[in-house]
């Protein structure tokens, strides 16, 4: 049995259970192997580990429209939904990048596949609404460089994706009057997804699902960066709350001492959730 959490209202989480078999049936299909050059057999490129989450295939065959990472937050306003998606993509890239730097290309690959396979599809309409150019192929090209284990090509493709993400982020922020509060809202939405991931990762007092642990790590570290971009504005508005925000993020980061999970988790899922809830309480101070 796997659990899923539904955010019922501010600071409240309800844990739901669903039969594992049902979830397995909803896992995205393994991408087909790409044919190797003639005579070389078949190379299976996409080694998607799956998240153990309900991911409904979109009509175009792309996952992420249902209950995957991209599927959450569907009720959010377009700007916030888009910002959340961008931050999750960046979170994946952060942790994927760490693994690439460690030479762990195969471990990194899921983190470069998930943004396109699980998140991008849910952002397509938002991108159009904000007049932001599509960057799906840039994401695919980036994951190809990881499959190819080509560091130089990876660096270039990564830079291209980062440029696209920065442009998208700027376009979203440009339409927000209270930018620092909007950033905190996006941060909170992303941290809630991190809590989901972490919950999936921890099982019986250990990190059972490394990819989910790494997802959560990437999301938290990305949010740490993001909130840092508005730190001065937050401090000017409410220094105490800004300090609490900072402390909350440090606390969350401490859950992830390294990209490789610790033997014993620094927090259990409920402790992690509690830390996110503390962050959420502080966000209200900047409305």
């Amino acid at each position: 049995m796997k659990r899923r959490k539904i955010w019922a209202n501010l600071g409240t989480a309800v844990l739901m259970t669903t039969p594992a078999a049902t979830q397995a049936g909803m896992l995205p299909a393994q991408p087909a192997g790409i044919e190797a050059p003639a005579g070389q057999g078949t190379i299976h490129l996409a080694q998607h580990q799956g998240h153990g989450k309900a991911v409904k295939a979109a009509p175009d065959g792309e996952g992420g429209e249902g209950g995957g990472e991209g599927g959450g937050g569907a009720q959010l306003p377009a700007g916030l939904h888009l910002a959340r998606g961008i931050e999750m993509i960046r979170g994946h890239l952060i942790v994927g990048g760490e693994l690439v730097e460690a030479g762990r290309w195969a471990d990194a690959l899921p983190h470069f596949l998930h943004p396109e396979e699980e998140i991008y599809g849910s952002l397509r309409d938002d991108l159009k609404a904000f007049g932001i150019g599509p960057f799906q192929t840039a994401l695919k090209s980036l994951s190809q460089t990881v499959k190819a284990k080509n560091k130089e090509a990876y660096a270039r493709a990564r830079a291209t994706v980062e440029e696209r993400l920065a442009a998208a982020e700027s376009a979203v922020l440009a339409k927000e009057e209270n930018k620092s509060y909007f950033v905190l809202e996006a941060a909170l939405e992303t941290l809630q997804q991190a809590a989901d991931e972490y919950e999936e990762a921890v099982e019986k007092g250990r990190i059972a699902n490394v990819v989910e642990y790494q997802d959560a790590r990437g999301f938290v570290f990305e949010i740490d960066r993001l909130v840092g971009t508005v730190a001065d504005a937050l401090a000017a508005k409410n220094a105490d709350a800004a300090k609490a925000i900072r402390a909350g993020l440090d606390d969350l980061k401490a859950t992830f001492p390294a990209v490789t999970p610790p033997q014993k988790p620094a927090k259990d899922a409920s402790q992690f959730l509690a830390s996110v809830a503390k962050f959420e309480l502080q966000v209200g101070n900047f409305r």
């Binding site: 190797a36 190379i43 190809q144 460089t145 190819a148 080509n150 130089e152 270039r156």
Partner: peptide, 19 residues
């Protein structure tokens, strides 16, 4: 040949000019 013409990268190498 495949060092530069990598199948995963559409038989090229993803960089401006290979080393």
């Amino acid at each position: 040949c495949s060092t530069c013409h990598q199948a995963e990268l559409s038989f090229t190498d993803g960089v401006p000019r290979h080393g």
